[in-house]
């Protein structure tokens, strides 16, 4: 049996959940058994009714103890579901939170952890995966022993199609001493972005050359027009123009969109670590020698304050057509 932990927003499954189902199905074909799912947290009962179209059985962990996420609790729920399902492999999204609780789960299960994987498969009594390393500059192939915990890098895997109705099974999980040691005092909402940066098909990033926080209104407008998310470089975050949540790079988020716009971004290695796997990279920079142009498919040498407004007009024309 393979267990897939299915991320959701309280109403709908996230894309990462359906990528996870695809991975779990492939592993189940090789290792035998079926795919079970787990949904945890607020809204889990409702989401389970959607999740059951993708897996043979959905475990639901919810209730007053499960309102706020903590890594300790999610690892505990996943462990309980893995035991209930008799799962030898657990698949989960490699979101920031996912990568935190899967590390705990791997220790609980004494399992091999294959983290942030691009692809995964099983052969004999081992699981295999590919992932990036060395700040996204190296592609490596790993082998892990069973049991295993595999986290799935966003936007790497086709979304699963529904496969008929499974069953829903509530799972009672008691919190232990450890799970009571973290208390969430306050949530700080992410400002700006309507689209999750790590799941966006289009990312529009502004660098220090934007010149001011106000200039990012143009970036926002362009991103909105394309249904994309806004990104920023470390320099922009340090200047206080944008929130940390929007940072792309080594210490920020890693994105792999269809198209990445680097506007007035010079392109330091630390920034490239967060975006160099984008399918198409577009750059606008007034410095023809900016390192970003080496990482660029389509670029314009010019002043972003003149080029970007024109780009916005051109896209409007295109959308209107």
């Amino acid at each position: 049996m393979i267990l897939v932990v299915m991320d959701h927003d309280g109403n709908e499954l996230r894309k990462g959940a359906l990528e996870g189902v695809s991975r779990a199905r492939k592993l189940a074909e090789a290792l035998g058994g079926e795919v079970a799912g787990l949904v945890v947290g607020p809204g889990a009962e409702g989401v389970a009714e959607k999740a059951k179209d993708y897996v043979s059985k959905v475990y639901v962990v919810s209730g007053p103890d499960w309102e706020a996420y903590t890594a300790e609790k999610w690892a505990k729920a996943a462990h309980a579901a893995a035991e209930a399902a008799g799962a030898r492999v657990v698949v989960a999204p490699a979101s920031r939170t996912g990568r935190s609780w899967t590390a705990r789960l791997a220790v609980k299960m004494d399992a091999a952890l294959l983290e942030d994987t691009l692809d995964s498969w099983a052969e004999g009594d081992k699981v295999y995966a590919t992932k990036y390393s060395f700040l996204n500059r190296v592609l490596e192939k790993q082998a892990g022993t069973l049991p295993a915990v595999i986290s799935v890098k966003p936007n790497t895997t086709p979304l699963a199609e529904p496969a008929g109705a499974g069953t829903v099974e509530p799972l009672a999980v008691e919190l232990g001493e450890l799970e009571k040691k973290v208390e969430v005092l306050e949530k700080i909402a992410e400002t700006g972005g309507k689209v999750a940066l790590t799941e966006a098909e289009v990312v529009v990033t502004g660098g220090r050359g934007m010149g001011s926080a106000e200039a990012f209104q143009m970036i926002e407008q362009f991103a909105d027009l394309l249904g994309g998310a806004v990104g920023a470089t470390r320099a922009v975050i340090d200047a206080g123009w944008r929130p940390y949540a929007e940072q792309v790079g080594q210490t920020g988020k890693t994105v792999q969109p269809n198209v990445y716009f680097a506007l007035a971004v010079s392109g330091a290695v630390q920034h490239q670590a967060g975006m160099n796997k984008s399918k198409v990279v577009v750059a606008v920079n007034k410095d023809p020698d900016a390192p970003i142009f080496k990482e660029t498919d389509y670029g314009v040498v010019g002043d972003v304050h003149q080029v970007l407004p024109a780009m916005i007009e051109e896209v409007k024309k295109l959308k209107g057509a």
Partner: peptide
Amino acid sequence: KVEILEQQIMELERKQKIIDGT
């Protein structure tokens, strides 16, 4: 528990079509 089987440098080829917009 995890073994690294193979590593390779992963740099995507970029088209580098740069337009002069100065």
